[in-house]
Nucleic acid binder design. Sequence first.
DNA 1: TGTACATCAGTGAACGCGCGTTCACTGATGTAC
DNA 2: TGTACATCAGTGAACGCGCGTTCACTGATGTAC
Lengths: 188, 188
Amino acid sequence: MGHSQVARAQTHERVLRVAARRVREDGLEHPGVSELMREAGLTHGGFYKHFASREDLIRQAAALALAKGTQQMAQAARTDEAEPLTGLIEAYLSRRHRDDPGTGCALVTLGSAAARGDNELRDAYEEQVRQYLGLITELVPAGQDQRAEAILVLSALVGGVLMARAVRDENLSDELLTTLFDKLIERR
Amino acid sequence: MGHSQVARAQTHERVLRVAARRVREDGLEHPGVSELMREAGLTHGGFYKHFASREDLIRQAAALALAKGTQQMAQAARTDEAEPLTGLIEAYLSRRHRDDPGTGCALVTLGSAAARGDNELRDAYEEQVRQYLGLITELVPAGQDQRAEAILVLSALVGGVLMARAVRDENLSDELLTTLFDKLIERR
DNA sequence: TGTACATCAGTGAACGCGCGTTCACTGATGTAC
DNA sequence: TGTACATCAGTGAACGCGCGTTCACTGATGTAC
């Protein structure tokens, strides 16, 4: 293979995207350099043509994984024009979201990692919390304390999906999701 | 040192307890055998007199860490005799709990690990979710759907503490805790 | 009660595997003429 | 447009460090008499 600037950039982004998915699926520690390169269709040796170190990639991947979350949820909100908050909550508590952490909200998957992580990771995490809170605050009905309500909603979403993923019994897992949905919607 | 049965059992438990704390602080992957033994006041060589493998210890430590959680929270509920649910929520959303994950609720710290973990870990996690739900369901005021209310409360607690730990800005972190407390209490 | 022996928790050096990283090399594409 | 050369993304073998695991040994305590 040659080395056009475009091809180089594409490879770089492909590796980064693979890593952003894997980091959500398996955490910051587990995905190895060889593994990630293989999933991107390459061998491990070329890795350092694109990233300074494994740590460098993982850092970027975590930031990207976090940033993707709010984009997706904002879009989910737009699908239900009449009730955007319902659209967001429905998407967040969907089985699809529960069963595919690799493309989902990184507030759930990277929470523990961020709590134990360095300032850069915690800043990226914090930024996403703020984004979500901003988004939900606007969607919550006026009258009450909207920000407080948004904090309750976001906490319940994150905690609910975390537990729904961790629990083994699928009935219990489903119950968590559907009950939370009803509870969070009935409050409107 | 000799080898009385009592001393042996004490050592075993000391290592296990150290591991249960470290596993909540740093996750299932990070704490090393030598490190854990050192913290228990021993050298690494004797480890295999007590556990079949690192994996074996970590499995037991995770189970213990999870089991300790509900015990503590049930106790926290008992401290406020008039309003046990308030006592539980207050303890869960306290800065002390946020700032000391090593002695806190493992539903928060081990959620991602359980989601990615084997059936045994997920069973242990599930069992604790059920324990918490049972406990909170009883404490929630009658009239409404108590179990649904318990699910909302538990999800908000878990998600709230997860985010409060991950976020860097202490003001935002405090806001999450105090706002959630008000929100969850005002509903009584 | 005292003595000789057996046991085995604990020690620390050594091993070996996995994985991040390095490096000499390849060959396709870009550039110069 | 065609040819010669330079570049550098990608390859895969090899290195080396960290860490889980093994093992020969120690010595304090338990047991037998």
